[in-house]
């Protein structure tokens, strides 16, 4: 039996316990959310306000969206947004597809070379992308994928982590359920699609969320692959903003806030998968 909360107590009284927990957590929340709020406030301040006033001005005197308008006018941020979304969407779909396909035989079939596949998968999890990026970059250039969506997707299209993650999920399905389908004369591909995938929806969702975040926040790979702004993703766009405007913090703040809105919405809807998924993936994987 699992507990939702382990009875780890510091104070004997439940009231004292709750009180000190809330106090400590409030402080930690200030540390995590504070910077975001400060940036939001900055992004809403008009040109007349002194950003560096001492003491700081917490709320904009006259909140304005001017900075956002200027950001979108000076740089194609909606284009960046679309690029980010497109690349992340393709990456997630590919990763789910390839990982769950490969996970099936690794979870449920015996075949020569199974051990070797495991070793290769583990090895590919150990290799840092920074070692790979030079050859992958050369490969992408050779294939004509510089400044292309496919090039951006390339390193995210399949992850060994995803394969292991889905293998774990498949192994949790009772063997007899799959055997029942086999007895009914259903082919393995149909079993994968109609039985295994529907039964691992939570894991698929968690993996989707993880690969989405990884791809969405990726910076190093787009940085070396892309030099045409038409293919910039949001992190590149934000970076360009910070680098190109002799650091006008109003604009940088607005651009950064802009780039965060989609992920905040996404996080709001999927936050339970982060916690659950991290739990599954981290402890097992």
């Amino acid at each position: 039996m699992k507990t939702r909360t382990s009875p780890l107590r510091i104070f004997a009284s439940p009231w004292a316990d709750a009180a000190w927990r809330y106090a400590a957590l409030l402080l930690m929340m200030a540390v995590t959310v504070g910077p975001f709020l400060w940036l939001l406030s900055t992004s809403l301040k008009g040109p007349g306000e002194n950003l560096f006033a001492m003491p700081p001005v917490w709320l904009p005197a006259e909140p304005t969206l001017d900075n956002f308008v200027r950001v979108v006018e000076t740089q194609p941020f909606f284009r960046y947004l679309a690029n980010s979304a497109l690349v992340a969407a393709i990456s997630v779909v590919l990763n789910l597809l390839l990982a769950s396909l490969a996970a099936y035989p690794l979870a449920r079939m015996a075949f020569p070379g199974r051990q070797a596949v495991f070793v290769l998968l583990l090895a590919s999890m150990m290799v840092p992308f920074q070692l790979l990026m030079i050859p992958v970059y050369e490969l992408a250039i050779t294939l004509g994928l510089a400044n292309s969506y496919l090039g951006l997707v390339l390193p995210h299209a399949c992850t060994a982590f995803g394969v292991f993650f889905m293998r774990q999920a498949f192994q949790n399905i009772p063997r007899a359920v799959e055997e029942a389908a086999i007895m009914e004369g259903i082919g393995r591909l149909a079993i994968w699609w109609h039985v295994l995938l529907p039964l691992t929806k939570p894991s698929l969702a968690a993996l989707a969320v993880f690969s989405f975040i990884a791809c969405w926040g990726d910076f190093l790979w787009p940085l070396i692959l892309i030099d045409e702004p038409a293919y910039f993703t949001l992190p590149l766009g934000v970076n360009r903003l910070a680098a190109s405007f002799s650091l006008d913090w109003r604009l940088v703040a607005a651009g950064t806030v802009f780039s965060m809105i989609p992920i905040l919405i996404f996080f709001g809807f999927t936050q339970r998968f982060f916690i659950e998924g991290a739990v599954k993936g981290a402890v097992k994987g």
């Binding site: 029942a180 389908a181 007895m183 009914e184 004369g185 149909a190 109609h194 039985v195 529907p198």
Partner: peptide
């Protein structure tokens, strides 16, 4: 041949009706 398992091995994500029809439908 058809088999009945100790653990029932029904498809948990399908209704009883779907469980019964699934094999034939797939065939």
């Amino acid at each position: 041949v058809a088999m009945v398992f100790q653990s029932y091995a029904l498809y948990p994500h399908m209704t009883v009706a779907e469980n019964l029809a699934f094999g034939l439908r797939m065939r």
